[in-house]
Amino acid sequence: MLLHYVLRRLAFFIGAMFIASVLIFVLIRAAGGNVAAVVLGRDASPEAINALATEYGLDRPWAVQYLDWITGMMGGDLGQSFRTGESVADLVVSRLPISVPLAGAGLVLAILIAIPAGTYAARNAGRSSGTLIALISQIGIAVPVFWAGVLLSLLFGVQLGWLPTGGWTPWNVSVLGAIQSLVLPVLALGLVMAASLSRYVRTAVLDVMNQDYVRTARATGMSQTRALLTVGLPNAALPIVTFLGLLIAELIGGTVIIETVFSLPGLSRMILSNVAAREVIVVQSTVMLIIVFVMFVNLVVDLLYGLLDPRIRVAG
């Protein structure tokens, strides 16, 4: 049964990845224009443009280009930049030391805030303390990430001068400096995500607390708090974990904005500048990598779900 469930999820994962790759490939090209001409600039000769197009196979049919790209990706070859000739893999790897800690710490911060806050708000629903938490998270949801970033930067960077307002100190130059340049971006990202996550946690816990099995736990002598923590939360974990999987996509969208606000040369900023430069190969390979990552996380969530809820293993 469990094996069947895993196989189904895997098949779904592969199918979805195929569709996503086709979409990326087509969308980038549907933007129109001669890629080689844009890359080489206004003054390039037609011969040079044709030479570039031939070199990178841009003059071949789309289907051929697609197959070439996909088989390359599967073999670990992500292609290279038209302009600099750098391999996409190197480009991506060079940005990870910024983007991975940013997104990772942001997510951890969001979880660390949201689960206690949401549970507390649910436990105290109807009382002023619970309502206050719910109100704060509601406000947090309404705050755009860039605004939170700008505000934090103004307060801690400009007014108090405790932390840099932006920019990046590489890890190999100064570990402390790198951490300092990440604190405000992580705060901005984590706080904003914590708002929506805590609201979700509150709803999930509230829903579970009204279930009959929590009443049974109480009727057999469990205290309210213990029932909440040992019966309520494990049951609420199912929807919360699913929501976390979906939040990964929001997280990556958030890093694009935060990296821009704080001038961090991360992965998202690299994609943005390459979109502007029509670096088709760089963009499609990097975006595909991100999609594979997001979908992989959701695959893990699905499998985890089966582990958390004995009913799923049977129902599939």
Binding site: Q211, T216, A217, V231, N235, R311
Partner: peptide, 15 residues
């Protein structure tokens, strides 16, 4: 003092 509820499916912890 204990209680037996109406619907045993929803009254038992599913996980």
């Amino acid at each position: 003092l204990s209680m037996v509820f109406q619907d045993p499916l929803s009254a038992l912890n599913p996980v």
